[in-house]
């Protein structure tokens, strides 16, 4: 049918149709780009506003007509933010908790994932299914009891209380087990024939092959320590053990009304900076881990 139509069309008509199609295509393309770029600017705006505000003098921030770049760049806001929120101590606390819990968590995760992926034992499938089922339960349900448990153990206001309860993540075990399962079993059997021990095999073969997943877990775990708020506030809210997010909120309790925003925004920028650096250099691993997790931190 199309052929018949084509024949009756003059060459001029065909050219006109082609031109019209090209125009529509161009307009659609323009529309798509316009939409994406406007959305990207909206997404970026808070970051720009944070930096812009953090560099202003208080007087300039309080001008009724906003300025889009500070007249006088106040780097000193960052120094006062650092001092006001005692950011140095908070950074150190968070790094200690982040590093220790990441290392311990990686060891536990690797060992359990190996057991689930390679070793045979009674009730393996049932135990694994049971673990996966706990992922459905909201964390608050655990927190209520855990709060009592750590109080009785005398762990409040220690690093331990920030590290131990979250050492095991069923999701990470699941993630790593899937990765381990992709490594052919023949490799394991060959190693057994050669008399290689399980631990040596795990260290020499499986860990290097699963390195991308391990890096993803490391980053997510560190980001988790950096962003955790509820649990640290509940159990370790003293100056000696306070973590960064909690400390930030504590140092700047005023959110509405007459706030010294430039200093507050400088503190926010300082807290956000490490996350951005991780993002810039390790984006690939974060995106890999995130697309499978669906949770933040």
């Amino acid at each position: 049918m199309n052929d018949v139509k084509m024949e009756t069309m003059s060459e001029k008509d065909m050219r006109r149709v082609a031109v019209r199609q090209a125009i529509v295509k161009g307009l659609v393309k323009f529309g798509v780009y316009a939409f994406l770029i406007i959305m990207a600017l909206i997404v970026l705006f808070p970051f720009y506003w944070m930096i812009n505000s953090s560099l202003k003098t208080l007087d300039e921030y309080r001008m009724s007509v906003p300025t889009f770049w500070p007249h006088k760049v106040m780097i000193s806001n960052y120094a006062s933010a650092y001092k006001t929120a005692n950011l140095g101590k908070l950074f150190v606390n968070t790094v200690i908790v982040g590093v220790v819990s990441t290392i311990l968590s990686l060891i536990i995760t690797v060992l359990s994932a190996f057991a689930f992926a390679r070793l045979e034992f009674k009730g393996k499938d049932m135990l694994f299914a049971g673990l996966l089922a706990t992922m459905m339960i909201p964390g608050e349900l655990f927190t209520i009891t855990n709060y009592g448990t750590v109080t009785q153990l005398g762990w409040t206001n220690t690093y331990t209380v920030l590290i131990v309860p979250f050492l095991v993540s069923v999701f990470y075990i699941y993630l790593l087990r899937q990765n381990f399962l992709q490594i052919p079993n023949e490799l394991y059997l060959a190693a057994k024939v050669d008399g290689t021990s399980d631990l040596k095999y795990l260290w020499r073969v499986m860990i290097p092959l699963a390195l991308p997943t391990l890096i993803s877990i490391t980053i997510l775990k560190m980001m988790g320590a950096w962003n955790s708020y509820i649990w640290p506030r509940l159990v370790a809210n003293d100056a000696a053990h306070r973590l960064i997010t909690n400390g930030l909120r504590n140092a700047f309790t005023e959110t509405t009304g007459d706030v010294n925003y430039p200093v507050q925004m400088a503190a926010v920028a300082l807290v956000s900076l490490p996350l951005f650096l991780v993002f810039v250099f390790l984006r690939k691993y974060i995106m890999q881990g995130v697309s499978r997790s669906g949770t933040k931190g």
């Binding site: 808070p46 970051f47 944070m50 997010t245 909120r249 925004m265 996350l275 991780v278 974060i286 995130v290």
Partner: peptide, 14 residues
Amino acid sequence: YVTNSIAIGMVFAA
């Protein structure tokens, strides 16, 4: 995604 909900919440509040 790579932000701190409390910190950026403070920016939105501002």
